[in-house]
Simulated assay, not measured.
Amino acid sequence: MPSPADRLAIAAVTEPERAPDAFMTAPVGAREDAMRHLLQTAADAGVGVVATRPEGDVERLLGQAWPFPSPFRVTVRTVALADGLDRIEARARRSLERMGLPRGEALLVSNAADLAGAEGRALWDRLRSLKDRGLFRKIGFCATLDDGPALLARRLQPDLVQIPCNLLDQRASTEGVLAELKAAGAEIHIAHVFAQGVLFAAGESLPPELAGHALALSRVRRRLAESRLDPMQAALAFALNLPEASAVVASVASAAELRAVLAAAHAPAPAIDWSALALETPAARSLGQAADIRYRINSAA
């Protein structure tokens, strides 16, 4: 049987709230050691995909810390279209240089809305050119439901689409969007598996956009507790059981957090009615519009 780790992708994060001792407050050498430990833990577990963004110091840290030989396939995201097509191409090349990679697994348009505007075709053609030159094996985009990802996929035929779907906001699955993307030939990576941290947040720490849905969120937590499920185990079980998903992206800030994620992913799949845990559409839409909650994964295990 394949391991759940085979379908996990990791996105390394360095926010001080997540890893105060691993990255932000440590000397440069210690931060590189922490990243090296995180990547080696992922490699030993069989995790194969690393998702990156062109911001902060993560790309440089990754470039200093890859295990050798590296087992990872790396996805890279573009900067905004407002920066210009030349800047998008230059930054994508720079991402590979910073990570010490001759090529990447995939280059993803960070905001699918950029593909719907007047320069959308030119942007896609620029990505296709980078693929044709061998810098990236695949091209695709990151999208929300509001971007009309299925329509975009039929028009552009992307190799890969990254889209949010989680325990609280299941609309991409229940509304058939994941099935449509797969039918269009796209590989699907599931994002926001932890619902931007809402699954780990107490009522008083909810962002204003979700304050009106605190009761519904409390009800979900109560149902999980009654089923003897912690939120992380439930979130990963839901996402890993989506039949269309090729990979489930989990953000981790340390090797300890990754070990906690791996333990939860390997826990026996619960017999539970997932649909009973989904928020109603208005709350799910608010979840998609809310800012990320700065959280720490319980890494005591």
Rank of each mutant, 00 (worst) to 15 (best):
V47A: 02
G84C: 10
A201W: 03
G46C: 08
P102E: 10
R53P: 02
W66N: 03
V50A: 02
A255E: 02
R103T: 06
L242A: 10
P27G: 10
L38P: 00
L127Q: 06
P282F: 06
T78D: 02
A9F: 07
A5E: 10
T14I: 14
P207S: 10
K182I: 07
S205E: 11
A278K: 01
A90K: 12
L107M: 12
A278T: 01
I293D: 02
A143V: 11
R18E: 04
F200E: 02
L181F: 06
L39W: 01
E175K: 13
R73D: 12
L160E: 04
R155C: 11
H266E: 13
A45H: 02
I10R: 02
R53A: 12
R103G: 03
E119H: 13
E244K: 13
E89C: 14
E204A: 15
I293W: 02
F23W: 13
A239M: 12
P207F: 07
R221C: 00
L258I: 04
R121K: 15
A278I: 05
G117R: 15
G134Y: 08
P243A: 10
Q289L: 15
I163A: 07
A253G: 15
A5G: 08
H266G: 09
P54V: 07
E244T: 11
L152A: 08
R93A: 12
L39M: 05
